[in-house]
Simulated assay, not measured.
Amino acid sequence: MPETMVAEVMAELAALEDPKMRQANEKRGDDHGVNLSKLRAVAKKLKTQQELAVRLWATGDTAARLVALLICRPKAFGREELDTMLRQARAPKVHDWLVNYVVKKSPHAEELRVAWSADSDPVVASAGWALTSERVAKKPEGLDLSGLLDVIEAEMKDAPDRLQWAMNQALATIGIEHAEHRARALDIGERLEVLKDYPTPPNCTSPFAPTWINEIVRRKEG
C-alpha cells in the first residue's frame, strides 16, 4: 500500500481539525479536534482496509487511530496485538472504541477479559470490566456473579476513575439483568454511593447504580 494513502487520510483529518472541539475534547483526555460524525464519514468513504488501519494506528495520532478502529477487521488482530493496542490506547475515546468495536468482536475477547480484569494497570483493568459487563448481559453462563459482586463491593469505592466507572457499569448490569442478585446490587450501590452526585442532564439516566438499575428495570417491566 502506498504511503501516500496514509498521508492523504492524515491531511483530510488535519483539514477537519476544529480548535474549539479540541479544547472540549482535551478536558476529557481526548487529544483530537475532529467532529466524530465527520470522522465517521471519512471512515465510511475508506470502507474496510485492514492494512491501512494498521498503518493509521501506528501513527499514534488519536484521530487517525479512531479511523483505524472503524475500518479494520476486528478478527484479523491476534491476542498479543490487541493487548499491545489497548496499552497504547491512553485516550479514553480510543480505548472505548477499541474495546467496543474491535475486542468485543474478537475470538480472543474472553481470554483478554480475564487477563485484563486482573491487570495492575487500572486503565487496562477497566477494559476487562467493560468486557465483563458485556458478558453479564449476553452470556452469563459460567460467570460467578456473586464473586463479581464481592470484588465490586471491596474495591469499587477506592478505584481510580475509569476503573470505578467500569466496575459501576458491571454492578448495574448485574442488577438489571439478574433479578436474583438485584437486591444485593442495589444494597452495594446505596452503601458505596459511587457516582451518586454525578451531574446528569435532563432526560438521561443517572449512572448511580441504584437509580440506573431501578429505571431500566421499570422500563423493561413497564
Rank of each mutant, 00 (worst) to 15 (best):
V102S: 06
V102F: 09
V102W: 10
K104Y: 06
K104M: 12
K104A: 05
K104V: 07
K105C: 03
K105S: 08
K105H: 09
K105V: 03
K105A: 13
S106I: 10
S106M: 07
P107W: 05
H108A: 07
H108S: 03
H108P: 12
A109P: 03
A109K: 14
A109M: 09
A109D: 10
E110K: 12
E110N: 12
E111Y: 05
E111Q: 15
E111N: 13
E111V: 12
L112S: 06
R113G: 06
R113K: 14
V114L: 15
A115F: 01
A115I: 00
W116Q: 14
W116N: 13
S117Q: 13
A118E: 15
A118F: 01
A118H: 09
A118K: 14
D119K: 11
D119Y: 02
D119T: 12
D119V: 06
D121Q: 13
D121V: 04
V123A: 14
V123M: 11
V124D: 11
V124Q: 09
V124T: 15
A125Y: 01
A125S: 13
A125C: 08
A125F: 00
A125K: 10
S126P: 03
S126V: 03
S126N: 09
S126M: 02
A127F: 02
A127C: 14
G128Q: 12
G128Y: 05
G128D: 07
A130M: 12
A130W: 05
L131H: 12
L131K: 08
L131F: 15
L131C: 11
T132M: 15
T132H: 08
T132R: 07
S133E: 05
S133H: 06
S133L: 11
E134P: 03
E134H: 14
E134R: 15
R135S: 10
R135L: 05
R135K: 13
V136G: 02
V136R: 00
V136D: 00
V136E: 00
A137Y: 09
K138N: 14
K139Y: 03
K139G: 05
P140C: 11
P140A: 03
P140R: 03
E141N: 07
G142K: 02
G142P: 02
G142F: 01
L143S: 01
D144F: 09
D144I: 11
L145Q: 00
S146E: 13
S146K: 03
G147P: 05
G147I: 04
L149A: 02
L149N: 01
D150V: 12
D150N: 15
D150C: 14
V151F: 00
V151T: 12
V151R: 08
V151Y: 00
I152L: 10
I152F: 00
E153K: 02
E153F: 02
E153V: 08
A154R: 02
E155S: 08
M156K: 08
M156P: 03
K157E: 11
K157P: 07
K157V: 13
D158F: 06
D158T: 14
D158P: 08
A159F: 00
A159P: 00
A159K: 02
A159D: 01
P160N: 04
P160M: 03
P160C: 06
